Amino acid sequence: MTIEKITQDHFDDALRCLQNMSLSKETIVFRGQQDTKWRLHTTWARFKSFEQESRSSDMVGLLDQFKTNLAKLGQMPFEENNHLDWLEYAQHHGVPTPYLDFTYSPYVALFFSFNGLEDIKEAESEEEYVVVYALNINQLAHHWAKASGEFDERVYQSFLSPSTHLFDEGFPGNTLQFIRQPGKSNARMQRQQGAFLYDTLDYHSLGFDDLEEYMDHIQESKPLDYNGTQAPPTLTKVFINKKCIREVFQILELMNITGTMLFLDSSGAAMDVRNTYYYKPKTMMLRGFD
């Protein structure tokens, strides 16, 4: 089955579409991206594609280098040596990792799709859209559980709920793995209702260019309690017209979904200042600052 693509030119329709997927019985996670030409790539995959022969691409080695640099600054965030916590921390500080960020909230995904947009043109065109990815984790897990032939229930459950010791011995290659929740130290992703997809698949050996093409060839299965005529897709791409930007930020502000609250730092506060170019906020000014 091909990836389902939905185009929405009106905010109410886009919001209803995303809410319906979010409230379904399936486990759906979302990812917002501004440029519709961007593909689902981990920073690790991009890093390895430009790797020089003399440079190590070992993830443990990169994390050790990152820790060494932090130690020089006296900024070690953890006492423990938990690989999973370090992977999340390193990713959010720009270290290439095999992680893709997702969120359970379509509203958070909307924020990331529209945050920081510039030069919205008056004339509508094919380029005037952002995209929200909706990934059906149940379908991806079902496919992964059949990778070796017959469906394996243990593999299915392990994909959905991995062991806390998954990365104790390092970072497995040629693997897809859903990480349901961020670590206890990852306040930012907790606030963003985040989840992760760990991806170290060797797409070249599988005959695919990337994760999206891989998903595009998945043969979906109908859930036992599903009443539709066709199985739900593994991946849905919802294209939303950029002209919805004012309505998007007006609604998100009333939900307290802003850069300030999602990032909990000065960079998020600055995002909100830039985004007010497109709408007039109601709640951001405090008494004594107006």
Score class of each variant (00 low, 15 high):
3 I>W: 04
4 E>P: 01
4 E>M: 08
6 I>K: 11
10 H>I: 11
10 H>V: 08
13 D>K: 14
13 D>E: 13
14 A>K: 05
16 R>T: 12
17 C>W: 01
22 S>D: 03
23 L>G: 00
32 G>K: 04
32 G>E: 05
37 K>M: 03
40 L>R: 10
43 T>C: 12
43 T>A: 11
50 F>P: 00
51 E>G: 14
61 G>A: 10
67 K>P: 11
69 N>E: 14
70 L>T: 05
81 N>R: 04
83 H>M: 04
84 L>D: 00
87 L>I: 06
97 T>M: 05
107 Y>Q: 11
108 V>E: 07
115 N>G: 10
116 G>L: 10
126 E>R: 09
127 E>P: 01
127 E>G: 04
128 E>F: 01
135 L>W: 06
139 Q>I: 02
142 H>Y: 12
144 W>H: 10
147 A>Q: 14
152 D>I: 09
152 D>N: 15
167 F>K: 00
168 D>Y: 12
168 D>G: 08
170 G>N: 06
171 F>A: 08
180 R>I: 00
183 G>N: 10
187 A>G: 04
191 R>E: 01
192 Q>P: 02
192 Q>T: 03
196 F>W: 00
198 Y>I: 07
201 L>Q: 07
203 Y>E: 05
204 H>W: 01
206 L>M: 15
210 D>E: 10
217 H>F: 15
217 H>C: 15
223 P>A: 04
233 P>A: 14
234 T>Q: 04
237 K>Y: 07
248 V>P: 11
250 Q>D: 06
251 I>C: 04
268 G>D: 02
270 A>T: 14
270 A>L: 15
271 M>P: 05
271 M>I: 04
272 D>C: 08
274 R>Y: 14
277 Y>P: 02
279 Y>C: 10
284 M>W: 06
285 M>P: 00
288 G>S: 07
289 F>Q: 14
289 F>L: 15
